[in-house]
Simulated assay, not measured.
Amino acid sequence: MPWTQASPAPVVLVSGPEELLAERAAERIVARVRETDPDVEVVRVDAAQYAAGELAVLTSPSLFADGKVVLVEGVERSGDALLVDAEAYVARPMTDVVVVLRHAGGMRGKRLLDAARAAGVPTVACESVKSDADKASFVQDELARAGRRADARGVRALVDAVGSDLRELAAACAQLVADTTGLIGEEAVQRYHGGRVEATGFQVADAAVAGEAGRAVALLRHAMATGLDPVPIVAALAVRLRTLAKVGAVRGRGAAAARELGMAPWQVDRAAADLRRWTPEGLATAISAVAQADAEVKGEGRDPRFAVERAVLRVAAAVDR
C-alpha cells in the first residue's frame, strides 16, 4: 500500500529505500493512533544498537494500560538478535501495541520480511521515485493533498528544477502552495525556482535540443560556474536525446504505442514537438557527439568542461532548421 494508506496494526512493515515516504508513513501511523489515544507513548529503536530481548520489554503490557507505538528503524542494519526477536514477535504480536518495522532494502533481514508478509502483516511500499513520470505524479499528488493543482508545463518546470531529490521536491510544492494562488503554472515555478532551473543540466539540454546554441552555452557556463559537474550535464543531454529517439520510433503508431514507453503524456507530447526540428541523421549525429563527450568527461579526455561544451554545440548544430 502507499504511505497515504498507512494505518495502525499490531505490526506494520515499512519497506523500501525512499526515506521521505517512510517517514510520512510512520508519522501517519502515529497520528492515527493519537486520534484515539492522545497520550500514546512513541518509542524509537535503532536496529543497529538493539539488545536481545529489548522488543519483548518494550511491548510488554503496561501497568497503567498506556498505549505504545514502537518504531524499529534500520532493520536492514540490524544484528541477529533483532531479527530473531522480531520474527518471533511477528508470529505472536501484542494486540494493544503498534510495532513499525522499517526496512530500507537489501538482503539483510529478508527472512524477517518473508515471515512478516506470510503472516499477513500490512506492508507500506516506499520505493524510490526516479523517473520524471513518477516525479510528476508525486508533484500532482502533493498539490492535490493541499487542495491545489498545477498545469502540465508547471509540473514539468518544477520537476526539471528540483526533481532530483524527493524531499526538496516536496518542499518546493509546499512553498508554491503557501506563496501562490490559483492554478500553478510555469511562470510561478520560474519566479520561485528560476535560478535553480538555470543551474540544471536539463535546461542546458532543452536549449541544445531546441537548436539554441548561444542560450545553451550560456546556461552551461552558468551551471558549471555554480558548481554543477559536467557528468550530469552530459547525462541530461543523453536522456533528452534518448527520449527523442524512443518517441520517434513509435511516432505514427498511436497513443497506445507511446504509453508503452512508460513516459508521462507531457513528455511524449514535448518530444513529438521537438522531433519536428530533427531528422534521423541529425539525431544520430547528436547521439554520437554526446556518447563521445560521455567518455571524455569520465576520464578519456583532458578537459571535461571543453568536452561538454563541444557536445552542446554539436547537438544544437544538428537541429534541422
Rank of each mutant, 00 (worst) to 15 (best):
V155K: 09
Y192E: 02
L63P: 01
L183N: 05
R148P: 13
T95D: 15
A136N: 02
A6Q: 09
V268G: 00
R321S: 12
D274I: 00
A22L: 11
G109F: 08
T59Y: 09
E296A: 10
A31V: 12
A22R: 14
L71W: 12
L143H: 01
A289Y: 15
K110R: 14
P265G: 00
G67S: 14
D46R: 15
E76G: 07
L101Q: 15
L219V: 10
C126M: 10
A271D: 00
V250Q: 01
R259W: 04
D206L: 05
A86K: 03
A199M: 08
D39F: 08
G74N: 09
V231A: 09
V72C: 13
A188N: 01
A119S: 06
D85W: 03
G254S: 04
L58F: 14
R221K: 11
V40L: 14
R108G: 07
K135E: 09
T181F: 07
A104R: 10
G227V: 02
E296V: 09
V12D: 11
A235Y: 03
Q267R: 05
A56K: 10
R221I: 06
A119E: 09
D132K: 01
G120E: 13
A88K: 06
A238G: 08
G182C: 06
S164M: 02
G163S: 08
K110S: 10
T226V: 13
I29S: 06
A258N: 05
R145L: 12
G201H: 01
V14I: 14
I233G: 01
R117K: 15
R34A: 07
R44L: 07
A255L: 01
H193S: 00
D66W: 13
A48G: 06
A51D: 11
Y50I: 13
Q175V: 11
Q203G: 00
V98M: 09
A284G: 09
D206I: 00
V45Q: 03
L313M: 14
C126V: 11
P38E: 11
V308T: 10
E18R: 14
A136G: 07
A81V: 03
G154E: 12
P265N: 01
V90N: 04
L166N: 13
G254N: 03
A174T: 05
A116V: 05
L275H: 03
G252Y: 04
A56T: 07
S78N: 07
V14K: 14
A256S: 09
R276V: 02
A174H: 08
F64A: 13
L176D: 02
L237C: 12
R167E: 12
G16P: 04
A210F: 00
S60N: 09
V42M: 15
G154L: 08
Q292K: 15
V121A: 12
R321Y: 06
E54F: 06
G195S: 01
A307M: 15
T95V: 13
G214L: 08
L275E: 00
G227D: 07
A210Q: 06
L21C: 06
E41Q: 15
A213G: 05
R240W: 00
